[in-house]
C-alpha cells in the first residue's frame, strides 16, 4: 500500500514536470485556406501548458477517399497519419469530422491486419477534437479573449453526433469577454457541405446552405461560429454571395482572440 502510493505520487510529480505533448493535426483546409485556425489552436494548447508539435509529414486525413468508398487509398493515408503521430501523447484536431476520421474510421480500415489495427486503435484512443480536448481533458481556464458582439453557433454534424460535441464549445465561449451567444434555430441541421457532396450534388447542397443562412440571418447575430472549417467555408461562401452581414469565424480563432483580421471569406484589410 505505502510503496504503491509513494510510486503514484512520484509518477504524478513526474507527469506534471514534463508537459504533455500534443501533436496538432492541422487538417488540409486549415493548412491551405485558413492557417489562422491552426495558429489559434497552437496558442490555445500552449496556454494550457501543452507542448505542441506539428509533424511535417501530414496533409489530409483522407476523408475524400474514405467517403467515396475508396478503402485502398484510405488505408494508405491512414497508415501515414498513424506513423506521423506515433510519438505524441495526444493528437488534437481543430475539426470534428477529421477527428472522427482518425478516431472512429481508421480503426475500421484494418480488419485483416492486426498489427495496423492495433496501431490505429492507439491513435484513435489519443485523438481529440480541439474544443473537447480543451474543455474536458485540460480543462482550460482563463481564456484571455474579448469580443463584443452577438454570436451564434453552428453544430457540425460529425462532431455533434459521433463525438458528442455540443456543450464544450458553448462552455468555452462563456469565457470570452463581451461575447453573447444566441442559439441558432436548427443549429444541429446539416449545412449541406458534406465534402465532395457540395460539388457533386450542388443543387441540394445549395438548398441546404440557403436554409442554414436564412436561420443565421433570422438570428440577427453579428457572427456565426463553428468547429469545422468545411461547414464554415460553405456558410461563409453563401453569406458572402448574398451580401449578408454575419461574419464567420472558427471557434479556435475566437477563443484565441484572433478576430481582428478579416473573417472567413472577407476582404483583406486595405493596405
Amino acid at each position: 500500500m505505502r510503496i504503491g502510493s509513494v510510486i503514484s505520487i512520484l509518477m504524478k510529480t513526474h507527469q506534471s514536470n514534463s508537459p504533455i505533448t500534443v501533436g496538432l493535426f492541422v487538417t488540409c483546409l486549415a493548412d491551405l485556406i485558413r492557417p489562422q485556425v491552426a495558429f489559434a489552436a497552437v496558442s490555445l494548447l500552449e496556454s494550457a501548458q501543452c507542448e505542441v508539435r506539428v509533424p511535417r509529414g501530414q496533409s489530409c486525413c483522407g476523408q475524400p477517399a474514405l467517403n467515396s468508398g475508396d478503402r485502398a487509398n484510405s488505408i494508405e493515408i491512414a497508415k501515414q497519419v498513424i506513423t506521423e503521430f506515433s510519438d505524441v501523447d495526444y493528437v488534437v484536431v481543430p475539426s470534428g469530422s477529421c477527428a472522427d476520421t482518425l478516431k472512429n474510421k481508421y480503426p475500421t480500415l484494418f480488419s485483416k491486419d492486426m498489427r495496423w489495427a492495433r496501431r490505429a486503435q492507439k491513435l484513435a484512443d489519443k485523438t481529440w477534437e480541439l474544443t473537447k480536448f480543451l474543455f474536458e481533458k485540460v480543462e482550460l481556464k482563463g481564456i484571455d479573449a474579448a469580443l463584443d458582439g452577438v454570436c451564434t453557433y453552428h453544430d457540425s454534424c460529425t462532431g455533434l453526433r459521433e463525438l458528442l460535441i455540443y456543450e464544450q464549445p458553448r462552455e468555452l465561449l462563456k469565457q470570452v469577454k463581451g461575447l453573447r451567444l444566441k442559439e441558432l434555430k436548427d443549429s444541429n441541421v446539416c449545412c449541406g457541405f458534406g465534402g465532395l457532396f457540395s460539388l457533386k450534388y450542388s443543387d441540394i447542397s445549395t438548398h441546404l446552405v440557403s436554409d442554414k443562412c436564412t436561420e443565421i440571418c433570422n438570428s440577427d447575430a453579428d457572427m456565426v461560429l463553428g468547429g469545422d472549417l468545411g461547414c464554415l467555408l460553405n456558410i461563409a461562401g453563401r453569406l458572402r454571395r448574398d451580401n449578408k452581414k454575419a461574419r464567420v469565424f472558427h471557434i479556435a480563432e475566437v477563443l484565441a482572440g484572433m478576430t481582428d483580421g478579416p473573417a472567413i471569406g472577407d476582404p483583406e484589410e486595405s493596405e
Binding site: 492541422v26 446552405v209 453563401r238 458572402r240
Partner: peptide, 24 residues
Amino acid sequence: FGRGWTDTRDFPVPSRKSFLRQWY
C-alpha cells in the same frame, strides 16, 4: 472544376502561404 460550388456560393480565398510552410 468548382462551378457546382461557385454558381451559388463564393469560395473563400486560401491563404497566401499554407500553415505548414509558415510554421516551418
